[in-house]
Design a protein around this nucleic acid. Structure first.
Lengths: 128, 128, 128, 128
DNA sequence: GTGGTCTAGACCACG
DNA sequence: GTGGTCTAGACCACA
């Protein structure tokens, strides 16, 4: 799994890290139960601060993507991620709303938009 | 046009304001050439600082949603917003990527996801 | 002579007006001694405020481009504009400095820059 | 690098700051990848408010002269500034137009004008 | 009265 | 300690 961070992005590094790990899971590059590098190792690999990695891991844990064992270290959640619940759909919808509003302003047709979503969706499943 | 801000949200107020105005344009509640309240009036209405409003306006202007007319004040861009270009689609795609990745992890099917997008998309066009 | 104002520009209207009149003189569309519309007429023509026209006229007068007679009204300075003096060259240089600095940063070659200047220069003299 | 601001000037301080930094890049006093003082440090150095410095930095960033690195802070854009494009040449031309029109009115010959441009251009490259 | 600029001081997210 | 956000109050240029 390759992690690429953009230090010039406005997106916080810990968020980028989270997103990349989630993307890895979605692409099945990271499978349930698989071990992730320790906070220290990950930080050293990426040349970033321990706190930054830790923050990403803590949030991933809190959102049910990973487990942090004192001994076994960090592993992808073996039972799969917590499924979509009410709260998640609400978050999802509110994150899509502004994106779609802007797309409409810019005259992106519904089909065009849905095609793009499909394309991205498939880009994850192709790897399956 | 009703603007509702969430002062508890982690999303900056000026961003919320931007999004609501963009949503207003998408819903055709705000039509091309229509005037927006002055920074001062808007700030007073919302109970926020005029600089916060100004920041939102400046960004909307820079992104082509509004323009600042020396006589009419702040108005919705009359020619419609700059259409979707290469750069926009790139931004759009990178904003959708992490959202879709998470949806996949949470076992949201492609159809389910697309339905949600459709629903949101239509919620803007219903007002037409 | 055609005057076109951009009410959406960041450049003040009175400045645009000044520049257009100066351009008119440079292009010999306006010749020495020629009359300009009164403040009122000009303001009505352009749909702008009296004060705005007045400010432009006052500055043009102060810089030696026009004369304002109580009776004859506003006329292009019959003796030609005050020639370039020390102070003018200093102003000219300091207005060119930042422009040229940016051009250099953007890898515009000296020849490229000078060609552009020549082209613009000629665009005024062609009308002669 | 020496920055000199004129607090009496009508040119906004943040604009002066921008111009001086651009001049510094043109003169190669600031080289690609080099770090700039933090907004706070720069503000303290110049005896101005940090928001003023921030505004200059934000605009320089938006125009591609600098970028804000999460680890290194503010740095001169390492890949060099975005090269001259269509839009830039248009801006350049419209900034030169009024300057040249006035020069013509003041009987500055084309050669005289071009010599001045050359002189200024060289004043940047001498430092190379 | 409008937007543009500048100052000042505060809190927070980030690394 | 860094930049990002928000507030507040002041002055000015513009129309």
């Amino acid at each position: 799994m390759f992690l690429t961070l953009d230090f010039e992005s406005t997106i916080p590094i810990y968020t980028q890290l989270k997103q990349q790990i989630i993307a890895g899971i979605a692409k099945k590059e990271l499978s349930a139960g698989e071990a992730l590098p320790s906070v220290r190792a990950m930080a050293a690999d990426l040349g970033i601060n321990l706190h930054t990695v830790n923050k990403a891991y803590q949030q991933l844990k809190q959102e049910g993507f990973i487990l942090i064992h004192r001994q076994k270290g960090v592993v992808i959640h073996p039972d799969g991620v917590a499924k979509a619940d009410q709260a998640y759909f609400q978050r999802l919808e509110s994150s899509l709303h502004p994106i779609i509003a802007e797309a409409i302003c810019r005259d992106v047709s519904k089909d065009e938009f849905l095609s793009l979503c499909k394309k991205i969706y498939d880009s994850y499943h192709m790897k399956e």
